[in-house]
């Protein structure tokens, strides 16, 4: 599956990465080679094989519905780039 410039630009937008034109063409080249390598997968017969998401066949353990966390806002916000009145600030979001 050939990778095109538009694929890289779309992925960069979805992943929110600013990519210059030069970078985009480098990425197209690198990613194409990686995907060529990945394309070897198409040669494997996987008929009737179920996808494996986790290496162990374990199931989800459930947690009791208890409040165990206390307010640590000040600690957590110490590493935040911009806060005011306990809120995280971002450039204005237009709804």
């Amino acid at each position: 599956m050939a990778l095109e410039d538009s694929h890289v630009r779309r992925a960069a937008h979805l992943a929110r990465l600013a990519v210059s034109d030069d970078q985009a063409s480098d990425f197209v080249e690198d990613l194409s080679r990686i995907l060529d390598m990945v394309d070897q997968l198409q040669g494997v017969n996987t008929d009737g094989v179920a996808p494996l998401a986790h290496p162990l066949d374990a199931t989800q353990r459930l947690r009791a519905d208890e409040v165990t966390e206390t307010d640590q806002r000040d600690t957590f916000q110490r590493c935040a780039p911009a806060v005011e009145n306990g809120l995280y600030l971002v450039p204005r979001v237009v709804e």
Binding site: M1, L3, H7, V8, R10, A11, A12, L14, A15, L17, F27, L31, I34, L35, V38, L41, Q42, V44, T46, V49, A50, P51, L52, A53
Partner: peptide
């Protein structure tokens, strides 16, 4: 970028599901 591309619409099954089967 690779991960975003392989998970995106139209590529997911050919890449991700296939890789999980392998």
């Amino acid at each position: 970028l690779i991960g975003t591309h392989t998970l995106s619409e139209g590529f997911f099954d050919a890449y991700y599901t296939k890789a999980q089967k392998v």
